[in-house]
């Protein structure tokens, strides 16, 4: 892409982006604007977690078990130092949520990056080469899709955990999560990319590129792929939301991030045991953060689908 962007065209490019349909419809859509703002606040806060958080939840020295289960400050019996209260181990909930959101976001984004890489590669190959390879790959995609991600992930992680023992598992949990969520969802991308490649392949610019003697890889990556980007953007947002939910569900089952390094899912899970004794905040507050995070991503995805998918204009 960089060779396409010459220095002289840069100012006009920014102006073009600001005047584009997407930015116009974004400004006109209050739901999209609010979602974007909320998402950015959550994202920035979680990236800056080490600076914002008053405590370091990974540092055993800063945790005191005597501080456990303090309620948030607006409830009776609270301790002023802990804004959102503390969890069952005496960690400051606000700091732990910041670090947990960071983990959830990292896992979600990395898993989607893996999905996109696998899916786009396979989709390009299947669509461009076609024939036997195409039908074989798409058959695999059908089968893989019919086994839901969560089911594959639960079974895979459960068996990995039983095989390696939980100590080793916990150490590498983040990589296992990224790998399993990433690998299980490739067909989503592969199918979409293949469909657009099939449509693009027939167009004249591909023919002329071929006549100019460009190799298939160059045509696929430099010419067809940029024209298939809008459906990729649309699925990516929904996929990030799904990946975050999957990660939270797996961590809730004890098949994901360990309690010593909690993501939002493991925090909710550790709080669940205390909900019956009245400590509702350990579960509810991370739960609200998780739902808001996923909701704004889904709303952005909805908006993006309406803007980028001309097929839906009639609706």
């Amino acid at each position: 892409m960089s060779s396409l962007t010459t220095n002289t065209s840069r100012p006009s490019r920014v102006a073009r982006i600001l005047n584009s349909n997407i930015v116009y419809s974004f400004r006109r859509n209050p739901v999209a604007v609010v979602s974007m703002v909320v998402f950015l606040i959550i994202a920035v806060a979680s990236v800056l977690a080490p600076l914002i958080a008053p405590f370091d939840p990974y540092d055993p020295a800063s945790i005191d078990i005597m501080n456990s289960e303090y309620p948030p400050v607006w409830v009776d019996g609270a301790e002023a130092g802990f804004v959102l209260g503390t969890d069952d181990q005496g960690r400051d909930l606000w700091s732990t949520i910041l670090y947990g959101t960071r983990l959830s976001l990292i896992i979600g984004l990395c898993a989607v990056a893996v999905q996109a890489f696998l899916g786009i590669t396979i989709g390009l190959l299947a669509g461009y080469i076609g024939g036997r390879l195409d039908s074989l790959l798409m058959r695999f995609a059908d089968i893989q899709l019919s086994f839901s991600t969560l089911m594959v992930a639960i079974i895979f992680l459960a068996i990995t955990q039983a095989m390696f023992g939980s100590d080793t598992f916990n150490q590498y949990a983040i990589y296992f999560l990224i790998a399993v969520i990433g690998i299980a969802e490739w067909p989503q991308y592969a199918r979409t990319v293949r469909a657009t490649v099939l449509a693009e392949k027939k167009k004249e610019y591909v023919d002329s590129a071929r006549v100019l003697g460009f190799g298939p890889i160059r045509i696929m990556v430099r010419h067809i792929l940029p024209n298939s980007l809008s459906p990729i953007f649309v699925i990516s947002t929904v996929q990030v939301a799904n990946a975050i939910i999957s990660e939270a569900s797996l961590s809730f089952l004890g098949l994901g991030m360990p309690p010593s390094q909690p993501s939002l899912g493991s925090l909710i899970s550790s709080g669940f045991d205390y909900i019956f004794s009245g400590s509702w905040w350990i579960t509810t507050i991370p739960g609200v953060v998780l739902v808001v995070l996923v909701l704004v991503i889904n709303l952005l995805g909805d908006w993006m689908r309406d803007v980028l998918n001309p097929k839906l204009y009639k609706g």
């Binding site: 939270a248 569900s249 899912g265 909710i268 998780l290 739902v291 996923v294 889904n298």
Partner: peptide, 8 residues
């Protein structure tokens, strides 16, 4: 509804 995980 879609955004709330089933366990939550």
């Amino acid at each position: 509804g879609i955004s709330v995980p089933v366990f939550l």
